[in-house]
Simulated assay, not measured.
Amino acid sequence: MIGEDSALFREGLAALLASAGHEVVGRAATAAAAVAQVRAHRPDVVVLDVRMPSDDEGIEAALEIRAWDPPTPVMLLSQHIETRRTVELATGGAIGYLLKDRVLDVDQFLTALERVAAGGTALDPDVVSRLLGAARGGSVLGALTPREVEILALMAEGWSNGAIARRLYLSERTVETHTGSIFMKLDLAESPDGNRRVRAILAYLEATTA
């Protein structure tokens, strides 16, 4: 399901997804219509513009859709970096947040969308970099080494340990050691009711939006 107020972008995105073998079950130009379409069709994943047409309409729609049982995975698209409500959306996974320019890299966009549809996370590298850069000053994240910050950034984008290892030309065991160090420095003990990976991402999101 696509929620996007620009008809040109909406139809172009629908054509792109159809050509990749995906079925587009609904289109909407407003947040209210998008929510109604999701209720009607129960799609595998929703692609929403953050501003539809006013500030944060897409985010409000995403929060509503994610509050249902079961929640529907949401991929947010934005023209510019906006992080005010990212913490709420990042909790629990099955969320993506990409700049619209990323759609031009079709393979990267489709990979991110499929990751979100499967329950994962895909945050735009530019969003992650801005959050991390702001968070390091005076926050608990200042204890992390540059390599740990780099790995945390890739974790926030939704990369697995194996994928991070290949990206940084490290062994998977080395990445596991770094992630363990990140969890320790952020005081994230293992618990049956929380995902430490998600909580590590939330730690710096909360630092930048507090």
Score class of each variant (00 low, 15 high):
residue 2 I to S: 09
residue 2 I to L: 12
residue 5 D to N: 14
residue 5 D to G: 13
residue 5 D to F: 12
residue 6 S to Q: 14
residue 11 E to Q: 09
residue 13 L to V: 07
residue 14 A to K: 02
residue 15 A to E: 12
residue 17 L to P: 11
residue 21 G to F: 07
residue 21 G to E: 03
residue 24 V to W: 06
residue 25 V to W: 09
residue 27 R to E: 12
residue 32 A to F: 01
residue 33 A to P: 00
residue 33 A to W: 06
residue 34 A to D: 10
residue 34 A to F: 07
residue 36 A to L: 14
residue 36 A to H: 15
residue 38 V to C: 09
residue 39 R to P: 00
residue 42 R to H: 09
residue 42 R to C: 08
residue 44 D to K: 08
residue 45 V to Y: 00
residue 45 V to H: 04
residue 46 V to P: 07
residue 52 M to P: 04
residue 54 S to M: 15
residue 54 S to K: 15
residue 57 E to T: 06
residue 58 G to L: 02
residue 63 L to G: 09
residue 63 L to H: 11
residue 64 E to N: 07
residue 65 I to F: 08
residue 65 I to Y: 05
residue 65 I to Q: 09
residue 67 A to C: 03
residue 68 W to Y: 10
residue 69 D to H: 13
residue 69 D to M: 14
residue 70 P to R: 14
residue 70 P to M: 13
residue 71 P to R: 15
residue 72 T to C: 13
residue 73 P to D: 04
residue 78 S to I: 03
residue 79 Q to M: 15
residue 81 I to P: 07
residue 82 E to H: 07
residue 87 V to I: 08
residue 90 A to I: 14
residue 94 A to Q: 12
residue 98 L to R: 12
residue 101 D to N: 13
residue 101 D to L: 05
residue 104 L to K: 15
residue 106 V to W: 03
residue 107 D to W: 02
residue 107 D to C: 05
residue 109 F to L: 06
residue 109 F to W: 02
residue 109 F to K: 07
residue 110 L to H: 07
residue 111 T to F: 11
residue 113 L to P: 02
residue 115 R to M: 07
residue 116 V to K: 05
residue 118 A to H: 15
residue 120 G to D: 02
residue 120 G to I: 03
residue 121 T to P: 01
residue 123 L to G: 02
residue 124 D to E: 13
residue 125 P to L: 14
residue 132 L to N: 01
residue 137 G to P: 02
residue 139 S to E: 11
residue 144 L to Q: 00
residue 145 T to H: 11
residue 148 E to R: 00
residue 150 E to K: 11
residue 152 L to A: 04
residue 155 M to W: 13
residue 159 W to H: 15
residue 160 S to K: 12
residue 161 N to Q: 13
residue 168 L to R: 11
residue 169 Y to I: 05
residue 170 L to F: 02
residue 171 S to T: 12
residue 173 R to F: 05
residue 174 T to D: 04
residue 176 E to R: 13
residue 180 G to P: 08
residue 182 I to H: 01
residue 184 M to N: 03
residue 187 D to G: 14
residue 191 S to Y: 03
residue 191 S to P: 14
residue 194 G to P: 00
residue 199 R to K: 10
residue 202 L to E: 15
residue 206 E to W: 09
residue 208 T to I: 13
residue 209 T to M: 01
residue 210 A to W: 13
